[in-house]
Simulated scan of single mutants.
Amino acid sequence: MTDIAQLMVFVSYYDGTKKEYMQDLLGMTALERRTREEGIYEALKSMKESRNIEMKSIISLTTDRAPAMLGRERGLVGRLLKDNPDLITYHCIIHQAVLCASLGDEYCKVMETIMKLVNFLRSTSALQHPLLQDFLSENNAIYTDLLVHNNIRWLSKGRVLERFWLIRKELSGFLKGRNNVKAVAFSAFLRDDEKMEIVGFLTDMMSHLNDLNVKLQGEKHTIFDLITAIRAFQKKLEIFKHDIQSQLVHFLRLLEQSKGKNDSGTRYVQFVEKLITNFAVRFDYFSLGKQLLLFIENPFLVTDITEFSVEAKDTCKWVDAAKVQLELVNSRRT
């Protein structure tokens, strides 16, 4: 733990020797100063120069669109566009999916309470954490420890919730034997059926989002694979919206906690509807025609050449419009 930020740069390129597209780690370097635009730009420039990579050889750049990345004049994207005006920039599709799942105020409070509870049990004292592990082991709990949430790791929240849910009863038993003020408050939280119902819903929903996150990761995925995964999840959200108002087939933890009450899922419909809206807003501009997607998957699947030509022209227009839109957004931020 050095408190020094590390910049990692990954590249996707065509290997002329192997005759295939490759993905690899270009490099990792420490950002000795603050993680500001200049430091990131200089680190990337150093990596590029040490490997004899010309700026004009870089076709596109994918970032999380943080302010340090986007600034028109001083941001990383702005600086690189000055070096290569033809550079095309993208917002990471995985990061966009994560942003769609932002929690509302009520759910944020519950999530924060769980994080505080985890930190209390693991970090309050050097003695308490081992006692917790021994208690869970003696009571034959499924897991003998809790996970710590990390905002940077996108799968972390769902995994923390899943682990917490599976040993929540044992945690309640452990806290009963504590006279600490915080322990009493956390014990009351674990006995609150309404709060635990929210935890059950969040655990189910984060599990579904994690499944999508995993599908968007990995090597050699084309835009066809990514868009297919996103579109499939959007269809699932419509199913979830109906299911959460009826049988809770896809929300088993919520069903377990609510004990099959008829109206148990209706209070969460708004959250699912917000997810549907967020995904539509962020991913509708990714819309590619059917023939064009087929061409990306396998050119021999394209049957309507006329339709394909129209879609290809429209996509070129979209790329040009996206570059103009990026400049406008950067201008507003600046």
Rank of each mutant, 00 (worst) to 15 (best):
R74M: 14
A280T: 09
M55D: 13
T266F: 13
I227T: 14
D3R: 15
V181A: 12
F174K: 05
A322H: 13
I167N: 10
N210M: 10
D225I: 03
T306E: 14
A5W: 01
Q257H: 10
R36I: 03
K323V: 07
N139R: 10
R74H: 07
G173T: 06
G200D: 02
K259D: 02
D145F: 03
D304H: 12
L121A: 00
V302G: 04
L131S: 13
R159V: 01
F10S: 15
I239A: 12
A229C: 01
E38V: 10
A101Q: 00
G200A: 03
T29C: 14
S102P: 02
L132W: 09
E297R: 15
N278G: 01
E112G: 09
T203R: 07
I88Q: 12
Q96H: 05
L293N: 12
I94W: 09
I58A: 09
F186T: 02
S50Y: 02
D134W: 05
R74D: 06
I239N: 15
V181N: 10
R122D: 08
K82T: 08
K182S: 05
S125C: 08
L7Q: 05
I152A: 11
T222H: 04
E307L: 14
V11T: 14
L226C: 15
K182I: 01
I227H: 12
F201S: 00
K48A: 04
T228N: 03
L288E: 12
D193L: 08
K220C: 06
E256L: 01
I93K: 07
K323C: 06
A321K: 11
A321W: 00
K182M: 04
H242T: 04
N140I: 00
F240Y: 08
Y13K: 13
T29L: 12
I94H: 10
D193Q: 04
C100G: 01
F271T: 06
C108N: 11
L121T: 02
E73V: 08
T228R: 13
D86R: 11
I305T: 13
E112W: 08
